[in-house]
């Protein structure tokens, strides 16, 4: 993101999230996720090695760190898309170790992907309706009898239109999602995730590939989530965005949590400057933020962060 971005209207930051000194693994007053000893190795490489981490409820938490710090891997682990070598974690008191991804999502913890996964050959509206939970018509035998699910489907459709209107996608509801722009797809993916009425929204690089005209509204949408009582955890490289919207920042490097705290103090932390900002100086930011689309090759694999 370029520096000419106009700062959004500042909204109140949530404070008083932690108990005691803001150091890695600090306890939170009201944690939504508690992770302990989560380790994941690829071959000989340790991608994630988190001793203890708590994510505060009702706040926006940013997960930052240099490329390869293990952010996306941690995301995949917490959402059940990858299996750790060891470790345990809970979401609102439910143990999630070994719980498959779809059950994690049903518990109210929904995620988006670094490379957007809009379902291109479904219409925008169908994309949205797919997000709703507990649909009778999604069960095999019931689906054969429309009178069993038609009413619910209408309700879902109404809710989908409301959200689409909010995300300014309602005029495109009958278009194939493949015809949307990159930023619109990001919005659609987020809106679709909201259809499942989640309590924790996990966004993997929500700003990657979004053109500057849309960043503003995307930021506002994320702030709205908190106002509506949801907890947000996001991965981002963009320091502007982190500073503006995050209430709490977790810094990772080489698979570990190296620092935690509110955005202002974390960015002053010499270790963070060292581990993160320092490491960035030689690297083209466009590459780091994934803003350059990965070459067509690894389309499907790319969501799995490499070593």
């Amino acid at each position: 993101m370029s520096s000419d971005l106009t700062a959004p209207v500042a909204r109140e930051k949530t404070t008083g999230l932690h108990i005691g000194d803001a150091k890695p693994g600090v306890a939170k007053t009201d944690p939504i996720i508690i992770a302990d000893g989560v380790r994941r190795t690829f071959g000989g490489l340790t991608a994630v090695d988190v001793e203890h981490l708590e994510i505060p409820r009702g706040a926006i938490t940013a997960l930052i760190g240099p490329n390869g710090a293990g952010k996306t891997t941690l995301f995949n682990l917490l959402t059940g898309f990858d299996k750790p070598d060891s470790g345990a974690w809970t979401f609102e008191g439910h143990s999630l170790s070994g719980v498959p991804a779809y059950k994690v999502a049903r518990l109210g913890q929904v995620r988006t992907f670094q490379l957007t996964k809009a379902l291109g050959l479904l219409t925008v509206l169908d994309n949205m309706k797919l997000g709703a939970k507990g649909q009778v018509g999604e069960r095999f035998w019931q689906s054969l009898f429309p009178f069993l699910w038609r009413k619910q489907d209408h309700q879902i459709e109404e809710r989908a239109f409301e959200l689409l209107k909010k995300f300014k996608l309602d005029e495109k509801s009958d278009d194939f999602a493949a015809s949307l722009s990159g930023g619109q797809r990001k919005l659609l993916e987020m809106a679709r995730a909201l259809m499942s009425e989640p309590r924790l929204v996990m966004l993997d690089e929500p700003m990657a590939g979004v053109n500057p005209a849309l960043t503003q509204s995307l930021l506002e949408h994320i702030l709205d989530l908190k106002d509506e009582g949801m907890t947000v955890l996001f991965v981002e490289h963009d320091m502007h965005m982190v500073r503006h919207i995050a209430d709490w920042v977790v810094v990772m490097a080489e698979g570990r949590v190296v620092a935690e705290g509110d955005p202002i103090s974390v960015m002053k932390n010499p270790e963070v400057v060292d581990a993160y900002l320092g490491a960035h100086q030689e690297i083209d930011l466009g590459v780091v933020t994934g803003r350059y689309p990965a070459a067509d090759a690894g389309k499907n694999k790319a969501s799995k962060e490499s070593k």
Binding site: A101, K103, A105, A118, G120, E138, A193, M195
Partner: peptide, 12 residues
């Protein structure tokens, strides 16, 4: 279209 996206939405 993309099974991971659908899985992320809570479908088996």
């Amino acid at each position: 279209e993309d099974e991971e996206a659908v899985r992320a939405l809570g479908k088996n």
